[in-house]
Amino acid sequence: MTADLQNPIFQDADKAREFLEATRWPDGPICPHCGALENIRKLEGKAHRPGLFQCNSCEGQFSVTVGTVFERSHIPLHKWLLATHLLCASKKGMSAHQLHRMLGITYKTAWFMAHRIREAMREGHFSGPLGGTGKTVEADETYVGGKEKNKHRNKRTKGNIGGKGKEVVFSLVERGGSVRSHHVPEVNAKTLRPILVAQIDRKSFLMTDEAGQYYHPGKEFAKHETVNHGAGEYVRGEAHSNTVENYFSILKRGITGTYHHVSQQHLKRYLAEFDFRYNERSGLGVSDDERAVKALKGIEGKRLTYRRPDKTDNA
């Protein structure tokens, strides 16, 4: 895929379909109904729509969009590819309002397209834990949503949930590697420990701030160091949480500057979007083109049914 927006795959539905077929089926079509790799023929002629295949093993018919987030969409495929590229190439995201203007579709359609693409970006399962011997993972939490005056941690709030209208985001970042973000109900050892021990290799070095919820879980790792932000300490040798803080700065600029407000229901998909772009960033040698292709490879096996945009979701 190329960054040239005049590329035929962004302008012509047939070219887009051929590109998606080559991306999803590099070794030839696979029946989404029975998984057959052979005895599949392409249906030609005016009686059949372009890109239709028939599996002679199960007698099912299918196209490249069956079994994906694009299935049963009436939006031309070239607009799907362009929307995917734009969302993958925009570091701080792209609003549904912007997509609706650029693609010439309604806002409601653009909103739903964007959520389907975010679902494609979401990792259905993680390949393994972060970190390992000699590696460092930083953990921290931040608060998003609500009015600007409420967007900072409220120490007096019971359970340390961050105050009215705010949602808690807990992220783990491996230095020089990937990030995994979670929308959690509150910040305490009970909610964070299961994530820490499931997502981080116990042989890792864990870096956090001085908050009490990390004290006991930190003992389960090879090493746990903290920095005392309350005392103005942010770096002490290798002890710091600057990597995860840098990720939060990108996330917050996107939420505040691009999406303005996201609903509690859909926050997990926005986190998947920002995680995906960070994990497939240019600093790791991934180009915009490659990032968009990787997102397209994630469309399989995920479906979202249509619903009206949430009145609190202004993206």
Rank of each mutant, 00 (worst) to 15 (best):
T2N: 14
D4H: 03
Q11V: 01
D14V: 02
A16D: 00
R17A: 00
L20F: 02
R24E: 01
H33W: 03
N39V: 09
C55N: 06
V64Q: 02
F70L: 15
H85L: 03
M102L: 14
L103A: 00
I105C: 02
H115S: 01
R116P: 02
E119S: 05
R122T: 11
R122L: 15
H125D: 10
F126V: 07
P129I: 00
L130S: 13
E138G: 02
E141L: 14
G145H: 13
G145L: 12
K151R: 15
R153E: 05
R153K: 11
G159H: 09
N160L: 12
G162P: 03
V168K: 07
R175L: 09
S178A: 09
H183P: 07
N188Y: 10
A189N: 06
I195N: 11
L196Q: 00
Q199C: 03
R202K: 08
E210K: 01
G212M: 02
Y214I: 13
E220L: 14
Y234E: 04
Y234R: 12
E238L: 06
H240R: 04
N242T: 07
N242G: 14
V244P: 02
F248S: 05
G254Q: 06
I255T: 06
Q265P: 03
R269L: 15
A272I: 08
Y278P: 04
G298D: 07
I299W: 06
G301L: 02
L304P: 04
T305A: 08
Y306V: 07
R307M: 06
R308N: 13
